[in-house]
């Protein structure tokens, strides 16, 4: 009986290798231009195009799952999807729980955005309200460096922190430069960058379960091939302004 089950199992596994392996990609859908809900109601963005291309190169059959940011790691570990492609920076804290692929977006300075003309002393921040998205590298950084003398407000989505910045409920927002740049550009002069750039994180990679080495290897190979033929830089240039591309080798 046991052998029969084993044989059946082997047959399904071997059979499965012939058709493309199914991989579910988890994303947030609220972090333009990385990933967002398009006008057609489906996820769209830099990472959606990237993820689809990576899957094609790796011979995987991929589907997208939208999951809120604050539970995106626990739900990966629990197996609700197999990979996180959601603008997630590679950090040591996260590496304790999950693995990351090689980065597909180079380390990007985080920036402060403020209402145009606001008078804030960035050399010695005190008594101001700083908006961040919860469970991000910026949230950890702000808590650590500015937590004592300022109020840190953490939001479920980055969009909410920007909405509250426009509404005057926070004084500054600290977020990825690549996320803030189009917002500041498009705000018609209402928002501006200020203060120093802050380097945190080791670039953006695909989050994976620790035991999924096979998928990790496939993604790494696909990322390397996109870096090598220049298509990754092309995609970055297409979606980001100013583009933060990988240096030419």
């Amino acid at each position: 009986m046991k052998t029969l089950i084993l044989a059946a199992l082997a047959a399904t596994t071997l059979g499965g290798a012939a058709i493309a392996q199914e991989v579910r990609l988890g994303t947030e859908g609220a972090y333009a231009p990385w990933n967002f809900m398009g006008d057609d109601g489906e996820v769209d963005g830099f990472e959606i195009e990237l993820g689809n291309e990576l899957c094609e190169r790796a011979g995987l059959s991929c589907t997208w799952v939208v999951n809120e940011w604050d539970t995106i790691i626990p739900n990966l570990v629990a197996g609700n999807y197999d990979a996180i492609i959601a603008g997630m920076s590679i950090t040591d804290e996260r590496m304790q729980t999950i693995d990351f692929s090689d980065n597909y977006y180079p380390p990007d300075p985080s920036k402060f955005a403020q209402a145009a003309g606001a008078d804030i002393n960035y050399d010695d921040l005190s008594g101001i309200r700083i908006g961040v998205q919860g469970a991000t590298i910026q949230a950890a950084y702000a808590e650590q460096n500015f937590g004592e003398n300022n109020t840190i407000l953490s939001y479920e989505t980055a969009d909410q922190s920007v909405a509250d910045l426009s509404a005057g409920n926070v004084d500054v927002v600290l977020a990825d430069g690549g996320y803030l740049a189009p917002i500041v550009d498009g705000s018609g002069g209402a928002l501006e960058f200020a203060g120093p750039d802050v380097m945190i994180g080791g670039g953006v990679g695909i989050g994976l379960r620790k035991d999924d080495d096979e998928i990790e290897a496939k993604f790494n190979e696909a990322i390397a091939s996109m870096k090598a033929d220049g298509s990754l830089n092309e995609l970055i240039t297409e979606w980001f302004d100013p583009p933060n591309t990988f240096p030419e080798e």
């Binding site: 333009a32 231009p33 967002f36 909405a163 426009s166 500041v184 498009g186």
Partner: peptide, 8 residues
Amino acid sequence: APNFIARV
């Protein structure tokens, strides 16, 4: 949520 990006 406010949107500042025409492409979105």
